[in-house]
Design a protein around this nucleic acid. Structure first.
Lengths: 149, 149
DNA sequence: TTCTAAATAAGAATAAGTCGCAACAGGAGC
DNA sequence: GCTCCTGTTGCGACTTATTCTTATTTAGAA
């Protein structure tokens, strides 16, 4: 990924914010630039430390707000959900997760198609394979219909 | 899942702990019973509140310790990693994650096999499909070879 | 340039999770 | 069954992640 791609991402960010009538502050631009340039999947704290050098008055809160803003606009995705604690899963048979992005509920589902997957080979350059699981994100029935929580 | 399955899980837990020379305390048994009976993927706090009724002296710390113990023994899995903050991912092209369970690093990988998956139909009973992604867990090269972090 | 709603910084507050330590309790050996 | 020893627990303090509150600032429309 070269500077071209970074610029393309930044242009997309600014365009979407303009379209949504959201202000383009210097803090946001700096945060966008940092995440657009990142090859990794940084957390807010990491970006904050990085940006603090060139923008010492920046607050961590602004980093969080800007990143969740991007997430809400669909311009970045997240690993993990908002307000989420670690969950423990006693289901040891092979299964996959349907995660509701609104209420955070997780439902197991089973799929012969997915169980047949063999990704161990595909990831061997990264390291030793232990397990694989599909995470499907969506809006659960309850949240869709507005039935309580 | 009936009481049979719960008992089977509990037997497995107690057997594994005995084999590993780990004490079977009443707190652990209660926590095991609670997670073994859970259809959901509860977090520590939820189990704690549930157990507090029948065991008022229980501490949240013990719940965490017991659950991570089970996880280390491979008797439960987790949704999310230990010590993890939310991460933001700017890669919008379809990709999947290789997560190192030791250092927590995440690497993207691409896979035509996985991209061809169509799970939207399989999860339609749960709710509206938004996206799907494969999470592969393993030990990354760095951790495998002991090269620094 | 002025004005206003939106955004920010700072610090307090909350929530998730862990640590240190004194008291306690399985279970091995008798 | 009793004793002892080590692993375990509960508690309170602590850390870290994240959000809230509020006074101040600023982008961008007029």
């Amino acid at each position: 990924m070269g500077p071209k791609e970074i610029e393309r991402r930044l242009d997309l960010f600014t365009q979407r914010l303009r379209d949504a009538g959201i202000k383009l502050t210097s803090q946001r631009m700096a945060i966008f630039r940092a995440i657009a340039a990142s090859e990794q999947h940084p957390d807010a704290e990491t970006l904050y430390r990085e940006l603090k050098e060139s923008c010492p008055s920046l607050s961590i809160d602004t980093v969080y707000r800007s990143l969740w803003l991007l997430a809400e606009l669909g311009l970045v995705s997240t690993v993990g959900q908002r307000h989420e604690a670690v969950r423990f899963d006693v289901n040891l048979s092979r299964h996959h997760h349907f995660v509701c992005i609104r209420c955070g509920s997780i439902q197991d589902f089973y799929s012969p198609q997915l169980d047949r997957l063999d990704v161990a080979e595909e990831v061997q350059d990264f390291g030793a394979f232990i397990s694989s699981q599909v995470e499907v994100r969506g809006i659960c029935k309850k949240c869709e219909t507005g039935t309580d929580q």
